[in-house]
Simulated scan of single mutants.
Amino acid sequence: MTIFHFLQVFHASLCPLGHVGYKETAMAIARELGIMAADDKALSGAELDALSEERFSTEVEQIAVYARVSPSHKVRIVKALKEKGKIVAMTGDGVNDAPALKGADIGCAMGITGTDVAKEASDLILTDDNFSTIVTAVKEGRTIYDNIRKAVTFLLSSNIGEIVTLLVAILVGWKAPLLAIHILWINLITDSFPAIALGLEPSEKGLMTQKPRQPETPILGDGLARLIILQGVMIGALSLTAFRIGQQTDLVTARTMTFITLSLSQLIHSYNVRSRSLSLFKLGFFKNHYLNLGVMASLVSLFTVYFVPPFRDIFKLTLLSWTSFLTCVGLSLLTLVIMESVKSRYNVTK
């Protein structure tokens, strides 16, 4: 995101040299604030008028500071940067800032000192007139978008796991590993609580150091769609393994093992998707209290169905031997082991 800082507002109070030194004053302030690097350029309004459109279009990305510019200059700067494919944010408070605020991708007006015209033309209003609030807003926006991706990743990978489990069993000629009531229960209980909790995940470390994403990038871009498919295949393969092991006893045992393995693997997988690159052991198991509560609620619901006879009869399940039950737990924990290995390799090859 490209954010403008029009520094001509400092001229009256900080530059007694008049028109001779306002540009130098603006550059000095910009360097002190970290806005201007050593190889960046600065332009005054008069110098901007002297540039042709072609010349300005060529140099606009190297210009970090504009001093003593008029409203028409601001509109010209916004237009030139947008033509370069930049996402442009513009801050302002006066009536003369309204055209540029309207033309920018994100117009940001002052809530206290800003005029009504500027506020009407803006997309965002700083109610405290504090520029640091913009940073907070950007962080909050990135967190929300990131959490939406996590929730979508969890739901899609879980659903693909269910599809793989049923589809492969049908293709190889096995009996259905899950009944309709099992699928409905998993979708309503096992999937829902963790997905909602993932939407409340705290900001990931290093979120503000990431490069801004391009607006045209799809929500499942950057290899996320491929990762979701692989995760779904993983969950499906583990569930089919449980079904195959259970078939050595009888069909009801096989379906019970599949139901428990699929449910537990999805719950464990909800912790995997909290970060695409950070290990869960570095991220911490207990930072998202909502996820812990959601997983706990799902576990209580699962074990109620499994251990309480009336519910167990409705779901056509059976009590497993401890060996079979621990086999289900072990298969489910493999989702954590596999994803930790993937994250480790991702960080090494990145």
Rank of each mutant, 00 (worst) to 15 (best):
V295W: 01
S44N: 08
D128H: 04
M296C: 12
L167Y: 14
G223L: 09
I219D: 03
V273S: 02
W322V: 10
Q8E: 15
V60N: 02
T258S: 05
F154Q: 03
I29R: 09
G111A: 04
F286A: 08
F325I: 11
W322L: 15
I148G: 04
S324V: 02
T249M: 03
T209D: 14
A26G: 08
I338T: 10
V60A: 13
T327W: 06
F6N: 02
L227S: 13
N288T: 10
F6Q: 00
A50V: 06
E83L: 13
L220F: 13
N292R: 06
L51V: 11
E83G: 12
G223C: 11
N347L: 14
G94F: 03
F307N: 11
E32M: 12
R149N: 08
G45P: 10
G45S: 08
V164G: 03
L124E: 07
T217Q: 15
G173H: 09
I112H: 09
K287A: 07
F10M: 11
S52M: 08
R213M: 11
S275W: 04
A118M: 07
L333N: 09
G141P: 01
G141H: 05
K23I: 06
L326F: 15
F315S: 07
F193I: 00
A30R: 00
K175M: 11
L280R: 15
T335I: 09
